[in-house]
């Protein structure tokens, strides 16, 4: 094993490609000259290419225009200003996921579209809490995808965590109910409920999530205490729709963004913060357990625009 890097370094590594192309672009545009409309337009495009979306990119650039238009600016100044602006937008949503010790257990329902990284994220969360000495139980309620249960069991073994499962095709709500019962009996700290991936426009599948909520609420009316939506950083503007529908149907309480270790920009988080203001609990920057990092808006924004 190489030496363990700090979380900031890891995050920066993860976002390096992203920031590289943005900062290359910025350096390309600016060589200390008056900030003009053409430059602002190009800047807006750079943000759009980072998946911020047309609207939010325009607003960020407008703010820049108000304060800096016509002034002599250097690439560094523009980056600083951009990072500040974006960090400001993200600051209110950077809320860590807190396990409430009063809940025995704290029930966490994990939802998202197919392939967003729910199962891997659950594995990482379980590992990190288990390492902190918490008793964690995982309910493998993705009874649809072939071998999803086996995948979780491997993570469970890595974390030393019990994984409750049933045969493939079983009723997921029933399993969630039993898992909660067992977790209560064991006085566990956390129950993580994995669910099958589903596209938000599939009404029947979305209704299933509501059923899981209702069924576990029979045992503990306050549960689930957290409902996490796992978002893939490579997702474009459809993430807005995902958050909207999952929030309405599954009452999502917070977001986790995965796969930020690629060239995907994750700029959609800015658009999401702007529109929904849901907490962003963590970001995934790799496949290993320690690659799930808490979300730091300043570091994220600075890394995004390439400020060291």
């Amino acid at each position: 094993m190489t030496e363990k890097k700090g979380w900031f370094a890891r995050l920066k590594d993860g976002l390096k490609r992203t920031s590289q192309s943005i900062s290359d672009g910025i350096v390309g545009i600016f060589t200390k000259k008056p900030l003009d409309q053409e430059t602002l337009d190009e800047l807006e495009e750079l943000l759009i290419a980072a998946d911020l979306g047309v609207g939010p990119a325009g607003r960020v650039v407008d703010t820049l225009k108000k304060t800096r238009f016509g002034k002599e600016v250097s690439p560094e100044e523009v980056r600083e200003a951009l990072a500040e602006e974006i960090a400001g937008l993200l600051a209110p949503v950077a809320v860590p996921l807190a396990i409430e010790p009063a809940h025995r257990p704290h029930v966490i329902l994990v939802v998202g579209v197919n392939g967003s990284g729910k199962t891997t994220t659950i594995g990482k969360l379980a590992k990190s809490w288990a390492d902190q000495g918490k008793t964690v139980v995982i309910a493998a309620c993705d009874t649809f995808r072939a071998a999803a249960i086996d995948q979780l069991k491997v993570w469970g073994a890595r974390a030393g965590v019990e994984v409750m499962s049933r045969e493939s095709g079983a009723d997921s709500a029933g399993l969630a109910f039993d898992a909660l019962k067992s977790a209560r009996e064991r006085n566990a700290d956390v129950l993580l409920i994995d669910t099958a991936g589903r596209l938000q426009n599939k009404k029947d599948l979305m209704a299933e999530l509501d059923k899981i909520r209702r069924v576990i609420a029979k045992q503990d009316p306050t549960s689930p205490h957290s409902t996490l939506l796992v978002l893939d950083a490579t997702t474009g503007q459809n993430a807005l729709r995902q958050v909207e529908v999952f929030r309405d149907v599954a009452r999502v309480s917070g977001l986790i963004m995965t796969k930020l270790d690629g060239t995907a920009r994750g700029g959609i988080l800015v658009a999401l913060a702007d529109k929904f203001a849901l907490p962003v609990h963590a970001i995934g920057v790799g496949e290993q357990a320690e690659d799930l990092q808490s979300f730091d808006p300043k570091a994220f924004a600075r890394a995004l625009v390439g400020t060291s």
């Binding site: 980072a50 998946d51 893939d232 490579t234 997702t235 474009g236 690629g262 060239t263 920009r265």
Partner: peptide, 12 residues
């Protein structure tokens, strides 16, 4: 390719 992919599609 995931049809929901955003701007990163070009790099991929």
């Amino acid at each position: 390719v995931d049809a929901l992919t955003g701007q990163d599609a070009v790099n991929v």
